[in-house]
């Protein structure tokens, strides 16, 4: 361990839970636990991916028509926003590792701003779909908007939108939780909870945040970029 001031080590010792032998064991354990948790998250989204794959394979036309209602500009912007937030998150973790709590707090705050930015843009898209009756349920109504190409298979386009809302909704829920966790880090960071010897929570929330980003990296092409050609 690098030399540090006594205070840091005391903070670290207070953070050592009784059942661990040392900080190293505690940190490894926490990190491994977080990865295991992310593994369960992958399987959680996996059920939806499976439904998506099955229906996309069966109802390709319907999915193409549904995807053409997506606003690619907003979707791509949101992808960029998330990538930026991942960068600030990664740098925030780095700041915590290097013992720069102020820098960490600033970077995490920027991450939160990006997070809200993502949700805001998503809300605009949701609103658009809602107004166009592209929400599954009794009021669902689908038109391609092109008189030359009427909707071929509106029933299965509804399934596309069911999956769209379920997947992006679940993702947005994860974003909300992520923002809450980062906010918690900011508060704890302001109170001086983290040092280069003890920053497990920062690291683990960082992993979570990147994971949520990762899910979106797949959702974006799956839902927005199926095909630009009409009728497949």
């Amino acid at each position: 361990m690098a030399t540090s001031d006594i205070g840091d080590i005391q903070v670290a010792e207070r953070a050592l839970q009784h059942h661990f032998a040392d900080m190293e064991q505690q940190r490894d354990t926490a990190s491994f636990g977080m990865w295991m948790f992310l593994l369960t998250e992958i399987m959680f989204f996996g059920g939806l991916f499976c439904a998506y794959l099955v229906y996309r394979a069966s109802y390709y036309h319907a999915f193409v028509e549904g995807s053409q209602k997506m606003n690619i500009t907003l979707g791509a912007t949101n992808t960029a926003v998330l990538i930026c937030s991942s960068l600030t998150m990664a740098l925030g973790v780095r700041a915590a590792q290097m013992g720069k709590p102020k820098l960490m707090v600033i970077l995490l705050l920027i991450t939160i701003v990006f997070g809200f930015g993502f949700l805001g843009i998503k809300a605009v898209e949701y609103h658009e779909h809602w107004v166009n009756h592209e929400f599954p349920g009794p009021s669902f109504h689908f038109e391609t908007g092109d008189p030359a190409h009427p909707a071929t298979d509106p029933q299965h386009t509804e399934i596309y939108f069911s999956l769209y809302w379920a997947m992006t909704g679940l993702h947005a829920l994860h974003m909300v939780i992520g923002i809450g966790l980062v906010a918690w880090l900011v508060i704890a960071g302001l109170m001086g909870a983290y040092t280069p010897h003890y920053y497990n929570p920062v690291e683990n929330v960082g992993l979570y945040w990147h994971f949520v980003d990762l899910v979106w990296i797949y959702l974006f092409p799956m839902l927005y970029l199926i095909s630009k050609k009409h009728g497949g």
Partner: peptide
């Protein structure tokens, strides 16, 4: 009818 369209026909 739109689910599987025979080649050469319109939906």
């Amino acid at each position: 009818p739109g689910a599987k369209i025979v080649s050469g026909f319109k939906p």
